Amino acid sequence: MEEVIRIGIDTSKHVFQLHGVNAAEQPVLRKKMRRREMIDFLAGHPPVPIAIEACGASHHWARLLNSFGHEVKLIPPQLAQPYVKRGKTDAADAEALCEAMSRPTMRYVPIKTAEQQAALMLIGMRERLIGKRTQLSNAIRGYAAEFGLTGARGLNHLTPLLERIQLDQGVPELAKDLFAMQAAEYEQIENQIVQVDEKLKAWHRADSRSRRLAEIPGVGPIGAMLLSMKAPAPELFASGRQFAAWMGLTPRNRSTGGRVRLGVITRAGDRILRATLIAGATSLLQQVRAGRGRNASPWLLELLKRKPPKLAAVALANKIARIAWKMMVSGQSFKRQNPEQPVSACAG
């Protein structure tokens, strides 16, 4: 076999398709392998650049193949798809990955360590538990309304509602037993959320960059952790705007013929990170509109006059992302220039 200079691998649970080319860009390796066979083959193969689609288990395979001496590149699926010639087959996907890696302007996903992936599990578990809690809370309120019982909005008013249900003589015993089961399930979810939050706080306190990012108004510990764990190396971005664009907080550009046409935000990048920053910005704007806090900068007040609240929240999240990028690049802490303009000020 001629010397292979580049390999693309289409991964799955058990079957792996390899596509390799030589120095003349001619295919010299087209082979489908089982998991063990692929590991043994690449363990004994001379070091070579390898492209893998950034998907499930891709970080594990990247770490493993890097340990064999190879240089693994993780390519986002949307950037590899244009190189698929026709149809959807494992061989076509592997060839597309091999071709995409040859492009000098190709962008790659940073490989996460096992510790980083464990920390990201905390974020995923917390989101799932909160969604489950919301779903259960809505179900309890819906069932209670069928018996003419309602409670005030907010999670704090759910327990008093459950207590009222148990004391109400008009609620059948069967229904009370079912409400008691739901109350026990709700308490279990609450305890699990508390445990996950404690682990998140411990991780946050141990990470210096996360602590610094949490000082930005509207970010908080969760947003700071997401920025630390999910964002690529800040040095990969030339400016804060590029970082905000990676996060999907910049307008979609549909310009043509010299005519500039901007649409809604692209919503590219990580959904959880983007949603968390927008939620933090929304909370900050609510405080400003209520006259609380020191974050009512002239820029922010003027923005609220010109834009609806949701658009203003997205614009503020964009600004927060740029500040976070500057802090991560410079390594400095958040600094308030003056009491009137705290959000727009950043060290460096």
Rank of each mutant, 00 (worst) to 15 (best):
C55V: 13
K73V: 10
C55T: 14
L65M: 15
L64F: 10
S58M: 12
S67H: 04
I75E: 01
H60Q: 13
I75Y: 00
L79H: 09
A51S: 07
F68E: 02
E71G: 02
F68K: 01
G56M: 14
A51Y: 12
W61C: 14
L65C: 12
I75L: 06
A57G: 15
P76T: 03
K85A: 13
A54W: 08
L79K: 06
P82L: 06
Y83G: 00
H70E: 02
G56F: 14
K73F: 15
L79Y: 07
E71W: 05
L74Y: 07
H60E: 13
A62I: 04
Y83M: 01
W61P: 11
A57S: 15
N66T: 11
A54C: 10
V72D: 02
H59P: 13
R86W: 04
L64D: 07
P82D: 02
C55W: 10
V84H: 05
A54P: 07
G69Q: 06
A80Y: 03
Y83E: 03
Y83C: 03
S58P: 06
P82M: 00
F68R: 10
L79A: 09
S58V: 12
V84Q: 08
P76E: 00
V84K: 06
F68N: 05
A62C: 10
A57M: 15
Q81A: 15
S67V: 05
Y83D: 03
E53V: 10
P82E: 02
A62V: 07
I75D: 00
S58D: 11
H70M: 02
A80T: 04
A54T: 04
L79N: 07
H60A: 13
E53S: 08
L74W: 07
S67N: 05
L64C: 04
I52P: 00
L65P: 00
F68P: 00
L79T: 01
W61R: 05
L74I: 09
I75R: 01
P76Q: 07
P76W: 01
H70R: 00
A80R: 00
G69T: 00
R86G: 05
P77A: 13
V84C: 06
P77R: 10
H60N: 13
N66A: 06
K85W: 01
W61V: 09
L64W: 06
K85N: 11
Y83V: 02
A51T: 04
P76F: 02
Q81D: 11
R63I: 09
A80D: 05
A57D: 15
V72I: 11
Q78V: 11
I75N: 04
E53C: 11
P76C: 06
I52G: 09
E71R: 12
V84R: 02
R63K: 06
W61I: 12
A51M: 08
G69V: 01
L79W: 01
H59R: 13
K85T: 14
H59D: 12
R86E: 14
P76L: 02
I52C: 09
L64Q: 12
V84G: 07
L74M: 03
C55A: 14
K85Q: 12
H59G: 10
L79C: 01
A80K: 03
Y83L: 00
E53W: 10
H70L: 00
R63N: 11
L74Q: 05
V72W: 08
K85Y: 03
P77K: 06
F68C: 06
G69E: 00
A54H: 08
H60D: 14
L64N: 07
H70P: 03
I75W: 03
I75Q: 09
P76N: 08
K73R: 15
